[in-house]
Design a protein around this nucleic acid. Sequence first.
DNA 1: ATTAATTTTCAAATATTATTGAAAGTTCAG
DNA 2: CTGAACTTTCAATAATATTTGAAAATTAAT
Lengths: 167, 167
Amino acid sequence: MTLKEGRENFIQAWGTLGASWGINKAMAQIHALLLISSKSMSTEEIMEELSMSRGNTNMNVRTLIDWGLLYKEHKIGDRKEYFYAEKDIWEVGRRIARERRKRELEPVLRLLTQFKDVKSDKSPEAEEFKKMTTEITRFSQKADGMLDKFIRSDEHWFYSTVVKLMK
Amino acid sequence: MTLKEGRENFIQAWGTLGASWGINKAMAQIHALLLISSKSMSTEEIMEELSMSRGNTNMNVRTLIDWGLLYKEHKIGDRKEYFYAEKDIWEVGRRIARERRKRELEPVLRLLTQFKDVKSDKSPEAEEFKKMTTEITRFSQKADGMLDKFIRSDEHWFYSTVVKLMK
DNA sequence: ATTAATTTTCAAATATTATTGAAAGTTCAG
DNA sequence: CTGAACTTTCAATAATATTTGAAAATTAAT
């Protein structure tokens, strides 16, 4: 496989995989492109490279910046904005984890607290409801705590922990 | 909040949240309904309860069975199939993790191995490509190992580990 | 201030994914 | 066997999400 093929495969595949990760294709492709780019790129260049519209490029670059996955750069004597990716893959992992936690876990926890004041009338359905919502709460809190730990961790912690766990 | 409201909120919200978890709304709602049901239910009853078509109900019940989240039951003197949910929430978590690993992590790992034989020509782009794909591989393998450990774990392991980690 | 370069917005168009419902297929009691 | 009960399939439809592109807004050099 040549470098050119490799780069194209990587960007294309990252786009597809991103979709199964709840990140849309355009966003994942822009991210992939900048991850493997050695220089920062302008909107124009990204549009060109990925055959993507200006609006789509702009919107997804903004989202990637919000997620902390891209940074802006201003070149002197040039009005255009340039973008480059966060290259520390552990940092990338943490930032994606943080966004997913926000989208996937926080709403569950918020939802579950509402059910604490549902009174059980001792019917099997009521008992089942109380039992299940309580257990899901317990589980979600543990998962949330673990994710939070990961989000706050550094690479060294992660490595040493994972190595220990996987024994 | 009454029991009835609680159940409806739970099913409705689980459907919405499921979507952000890569599980479609119908599938998540059927799962929610059976999680908080004290008895097994037929396709008819599920359709009725969730105002959902027969085809949709059937298809998603099958998928839930494939995932190991629902079981079949046959009642004597009744030709219909009845379904009930896996109620152990840790088991549910593990089974969802297993499916997500299959969909989200395995393809990444398969993809990344392809890039090992891309030759670097010492250009900055080639170096960046090699470096990034190598690091993503390392990260993904760690994440995969960790997920695998969780999938094979029991609740006790999970608890004691999480408690330790979160100190 | 003017204006050209650049970025952002957003309604319309496209593409993707989920759902329906009726027809086809299967199963099993009589 | 037969046919009624039940399950599965799948083409058509509906719902959702993404993408486009041109107009509006913003920015900064002169």
